[in-house]
Design a binder for these strands. Structure first.
Length: 261
DNA sequence: AAGAGAGACAACCGCTGTAGA
DNA sequence: GTCTACAGCGGTTGTCTCTCT
């Protein structure tokens, strides 16, 4: 195996499961020196572990605020929603689940949730028009299945209206640049209000008091929910996020209602 | 009871981004 | 501008446990 070969040159470093003694050394080190400086641990403590291994062990297992035990149905629902928007950006998803680690969520998704989402998708997919099914190309000729996709880029962009809605010159410019450069945007270029401005969803999920988007956003929805499905008039703040995570997916005929600035 | 297969999860690897010299 | 060390991320693998036959 490839990996065994990689181990051979590093016999001085312990590998595999951590012992209780090693854990205690790492805990003591972090209590004394704080997190970080992982590369110095072996030198300072004699612990025969690489810095990366120490960091991973601390962050994924030893850190006091880590929540152990089963993932609740609420958390599960949130993971599914976040994954539909963010793709496999586990650290971002984990950031929205206090006490859960990216590794834990990634494992949970790969071993359980992905199958669940796929099954649900297969059930739902039988009830929607062929042209809107996930395996069909979207308006940009790209077929995307959120349950399987590792394309994090797929849902990291959001669109929002700008004053360009009333400016045909800028509007054409936006269409020819933003949409072409971002084929994953779900608002079709010929949509009457589909003139937008992009920003990263990461920013959207972060509370920002001084955001320059005036607190309004339109979040992309996976293609199978309909290309006109958009979330509008939601403030880009914690309140927005709390509302969003507690709601179901938006109906296909949800009204477009971009604010004008 | 024993072996095979599946599931769960801890741990590792390679890569990228960033800060500091 | 370049180099180096470090931190962080996502994909992948290894191993243990559980379930089924």
């Amino acid at each position: 195996m490839k990996r065994k070969g990689a181990y051979e040159n590093q016999e001085a470093v312990n590998r595999g499961p951590w012992s209780a003694e090693e854990d205690q050394i790492l805990i003591n080190y972090v209590h004394l020196h704080g997190e970080g400086k992982w590369g110095q641990i072996s030198r300072r403590t004699g612990l025969k572990r690489g810095g990366k291994s120490c960091r991973l062990r601390w962050l994924n297992y030893l850190k006091p605020d880590i929540k152990r035990g089963n993932i609740s149905s609420d958390e599960e629902d949130l993971i599914i929603r976040l994954h539909s928007l963010l793709g496999n950006r586990w650290s971002l998803i984990a950031g929205r689940l206090p006490g859960r680690t990216d590794n834990e969520i990634k494992n949970y998704w790969n071993t359980y949730l992905r199958k669940k989402v796929e099954e649900k998708h297969n059930d739902n997919n039988n009830n929607i028009p062929v042209e809107l099914r996930m395996e069909s190309p979207n308006a940009f000729g790209i077929a995307i299945d959120p349950a399987k996709s590792s394309e994090a880029v797929m849902c990291t962009e959001v669109m929002m209206a700008t004053e360009a809605v009333n400016d045909s010159v800028n509007a054409k410019s936006l269409i020819s640049t933003n949409y072409n450069e971002n084929p994953f945007a779900s608002v079709p270029a010929d949509h009457p209000e589909g003139l937008g401005r992009q920003f990263d969803l990461t920013e959207l999920l972060m509370p920002q008091e001084d955001c320059d988007f005036n607190g309004y956003a339109c979040v992309e929805i996976p293609p199978h929910f309909g290309e006109h499905s958009c979330r509008v008039n939601d403030a880009m703040c914690e309140t927005w996020y709390d509302d969003w995570k507690n709601e179901d997916y938006f109906p296909l005929d949800y009204d477009m209602d971009f604010p004008l600035f």
